[in-house]
């Protein structure tokens, strides 16, 4: 029994990451609304960030901020502090994610100004109708 509990505790965080990735991919593939697709992309992004952070975590470790006073007196034990490298990589990734969110939303606004809707199938139908009209004009 303890074996199973240990197995679940050591792996459940990764399973949560995979489920969030699946939700994100599902939203990107099968939702028709463009805002929903953008939100699916963001969920995917946060899942990846969660994966990096769970790689860097350590049992019984403190946050990665040292004491200022005993800098020369005490030898620092690396096992006492969480791995700071994934934090750095992901901190910049979050701020870049809001910038990409801004670009994606401005593309969505531009598409809405052009077609008057955000549903992907209606946009595809309008583009196909335009192409058909153009080809009829070309044939004439």
């Amino acid at each position: 029994m303890d074996n199973y509990l240990f197995f679940i505790v050591s792996k459940f965080n990764y399973w949560g990451v995979m489920i969030l990735i699946m939700i994100g991919i599902y939203a990107i593939i099968s939702k028709q609304n463009l805002i929903k697709k953008i939100i699916g992309m963001n969920i995917f992004q946060t899942a990846i960030i969660l994966f990096y952070i769970s790689i860097g975590s350590k049992k019984n470790a403190s946050i990665p901020i040292l004491h200022h006073l005993n800098e020369h007196t005490q030898k620092i034990n690396p096992d006492d502090f969480v791995n700071p490298l994934p934090h750095v990589l992901m901190l910049t990734a979050i701020v870049v994610s809001v910038a990409t969110l801004g670009v994606a939303l401005s593309l969505a606004i531009k598409i809405y100004q052009q077609f008057g809707t955000l549903e992907e199938n209606i946009i595809n139908n309008k583009i196909a109708a335009d192409n058909n009209r153009q080809s009829v004009i070309d044939r004439l």
């Binding site: 975590s57 946050i63 901020i65 969480v82 979050i94």
Partner: peptide, 18 residues
């Protein structure tokens, strides 16, 4: 999980501006 800087960033960026 001890990632205080990342949590701070997400609280200001994800829950605020985005």
């Amino acid at each position: 999980m001890g990632a205080v800087d990342v949590a701070f960033t997400e609280a200001s960026v994800g829950a605020g501006v985005s």
